[in-house]
C-alpha cells in the first residue's frame, strides 16, 4: 500500500505538470486557432507582458500588497471574533437561543451587500474592505466552533469533572482542543472568503488595491490587465490557504495522516 501510495503521488504530480504545460499552450495558441480576438481572451504571453508593464507603470506590487494586507487583517480579525463568539455561545445555550435569530439573519444577509454602506461610513480607506472581510469570515468560523463545542461527547466532560476539573480546566483541556479540527476546516474556507470580501470592498470604492485596478482595467477595456488582477488575487488567496494548511498540519499533527496530504 505504502509503495503504491508514493507511486500514485509521483504519477499524479507528473500528470499535473504535463496538464499545466498543456493549459499554458492552449491559452497561448487556442484563442487564435478558434478565432477569438485578443481583446476578448488575450493569450498568456500578452497577459505576462501586461504584468511586467503593470509592475513598473501601475505600481502593481503596491496594490497587491495593500490587498494582501487587507486580506490578512480581515481574515485574522474575522476568525478571531468568530472563534470567540463560537466558544461563548457554545458554552451558553441560553445566549445561543437568545441570539440565534440575529445570527441567522446576519448569516443569511449577503455580506458583500454591506460594502457600499461601510464605505459610506468609513470613506475610501482600507477599513471598509477589512470590515467586509471580517464579516464574511466571521460566520463559518463561529458556526463551526459552536457546532464543535456542542458535539463534544458529554462523557468526556464528565470524565474531566470526575477528576474535579474546574470550568476553565474543562475548557482548556477538553473543549478547546476538541474544537481544533472543525476550527481549521472553517479557517480554510475563511481564507478564501476573506479575498472575496476585500475585493468587493475595493470594487465598490477607493483608489488602491487589486479590486481598484480591476475596475481601472475594465474602464480602459484592458482585458489583459483584468486577467493580471484575477491571477494576482488567486495567488493571494492561494498563499493564504496554504498558510492555513501549514499551520493546521503543525497544530493537528496528532491526526492520522490524510491520504496524500490532500488539499
Amino acid at each position: 500500500m505504502t509503495t503504491s501510495r508514493s507511486a500514485i503521488l509521483r504519477r499524479g504530480t507528473a500528470a499535473s505538470v504535463v496538464l499545466f504545460v498543456f493549459f499554458l499552450a492552449a491559452w497561448e495558441w487556442g484563442p487564435a486557432l478558434l478565432g477569438i480576438p485578443a481583446f476578448v481572451l488575450p493569450p498568456a504571453s500578452a497577459v505576462y507582458a501586461e504584468f511586467i508593464r503593470m509592475v513598473s507603470v501601475n505600481h502593481l506590487l503596491f496594490h497587491a500588497g495593500v490587498t494582501a494586507a487587507e486580506v490578512v487583517a480581515g481574515f485574522v480579525l474575522g476568525s478571531l471574533m468568530g472563534a470567540v463568539f463560537g466558544y461563548l455561545l457554545g458554552m451558553s445555550p441560553t445566549a445561543e437561543i437568545a441570539l440565534s435569530p440575529y445570527i441567522l439573519a446576519l448569516q443569511i444577509a449577503p455580506k458583500v451587500a454591506f460594502a457600499p454602506l461601510f464605505i459610506m461610513w468609513m470613506g475610501f480607506t482600507v477599513y471598509p474592505k477589512i470590515l467586509v472581510a471580517v464579516l464574511i469570515v466571521f460566520f463559518p468560523v463561529m458556526v463551526n466552533v459552536l457546532t464543535a463545542i456542542r458535539g463534544i461527547d458529554p462523557d468526556l466532560i464528565n470524565l474531566a469533572r470526575s477528576f474535579t476539573a474546574s470550568r476553565p480546566q474543562i475548557f482548556w483541556k477538553i473543549e478547546f482542543p476538541s474544537s481544533m479540527p472543525p476550527l481549521f476546516a472553517s479557517l480554510r474556507i475563511g481564507s478564501t472568503l476573506a479575498v472575496v470580501g476585500v475585493v468587493v470592498g475595493e470594487l465598490v470604492g477607493g483608489n488602491f488595491g487589486l479590486g481598484y485596478l480591476l475596475t481601472f482595467g475594465e474602464g480602459q477595456a484592458n482585458t489583459p490587465m483584468v486577467f493580471v488582477c484575477i491571477l494576482m488575487l488567486t495567488l493571494i488567496g492561494g498563499i493564504a490557504y496554504v498558510a492555513v494548511i501549514l499551520i493546521e498540519q503543525r497544530v493537528l499533527h496528532y491526526m492520522p495522516a490524510r491520504p496524500l496530504g490532500g488539499v
Binding site: D153, D155, L156, L159, I174, P177, M180, Y254
Partner: peptide, 8 residues
C-alpha cells in the same frame, strides 16, 4: 468507551 483524547 476509552475516552482517550486524540491530541494527547
Amino acid at each position: 468507551k476509552d475516552l482517550l483524547l486524540p491530541w494527547r
